[in-house]
């Protein structure tokens, strides 16, 4: 990994929820029977934490509804893969289809939820998650712009700040946009935050995290909920 750390900037990366705990927290909020598309990376972890008794149908945009977990070693098929191009399985009741049908499901509003990573989320719901705009970068977009344009709910799961301590929740995205006003909710390592008509609204704090820490780590105003149970741990 080419991870860079800053010695000077105080980091929020190691407090609050771990990646798995963020995924677990998000998984509690997915309704039974939902059709769900999980992005590559942390979003994929969500599937491991869906509460018992709920049945979700996973969509992968390369043409499968009813995606199951990774195959046993040696039992995979190079032609049964997910959007991250890793081998997966097909659950009972699965269906294969071509790419135009797959994106008709996406764009046509047939999927209930998409979980994505983010470079930046603006307080009006704008999302940047496909490019840093660097001159030497190879442009690559995949299906993110279609997903955010069409899926009913868009949840972002992300570290609250970058590895150098910059807020990822901002007034306005500086990276190239993926979509305008598309994000409904953010699950970070520090908090659960709704994107409302009035901006970012705190829903829940991660254990051991206080409101001031979240405010300082957020690059736009943070509305506080009326209820007094913020800070309670589960």
């Amino acid at each position: 990994m080419t991870r860079q750390t800053s010695q000077q900037t105080p980091s929020t990366e190691t407090i609050g929820w771990t990646r798995e705990q963020m995924a677990q927290r998000l998984a509690q909020d997915i309704a039974d029977g939902s059709y769900v598309n999980l992005g590559i990376g942390i979003p994929e972890l969500v599937a491991k934490f869906v509460p018992a008794g709920r049945e979700l149908i996973y969509h992968t945009e390369n043409g499968l509804l009813g995606m199951g977990p990774s195959p046993e070693p040696g039992a995979g098929d190079p032609e049964l893969i997910n959007a991250g191009k890793r081998q997966v399985t097909a659950n009972p009741g699965a269906a294969f289809f071509h790419h135009a049908d797959s994106f008709a499901m996406i764009r046509g509003g047939h999927l209930d939820l998409c979980v994505l990573g983010a470079l930046q989320v603006a307080h009006n719901g704008d999302l940047a998650n496909w490019s840093t705009g660097a001159d030497d970068a190879i442009p690559a977009v995949g299906g993110a712009m279609d997903l955010v344009a069409g899926v009913k709910s868009i949840y972002v799961i992300t570290q609250h700040c970058t590895k150098t301590g910059e807020p990822k929740l901002v007034e306005a995205c500086t990276y190239p946009l993926t979509g305008l006003g598309v994000v409904n909710r953010v699950y970070s390592n520090l908090a659960v935050i709704d994107v409302t008509a009035n901006g970012f609204q705190l829903v829940e704090l991660a254990p051991g995290v206080d409101v001031d820490t979240v405010k300082q780590a957020t690059g736009a105003p943070l509305l506080l909920p009326a209820s007094a149970n913020i800070g309670s741990t589960k």
Partner: peptide
């Protein structure tokens, strides 16, 4: 560069 769903629909 074309979004994946746009690419599919352009072809369709």
């Amino acid at each position: 560069l074309t979004p994946q769903g746009t690419l599919a629909e352009r072809i369709r």
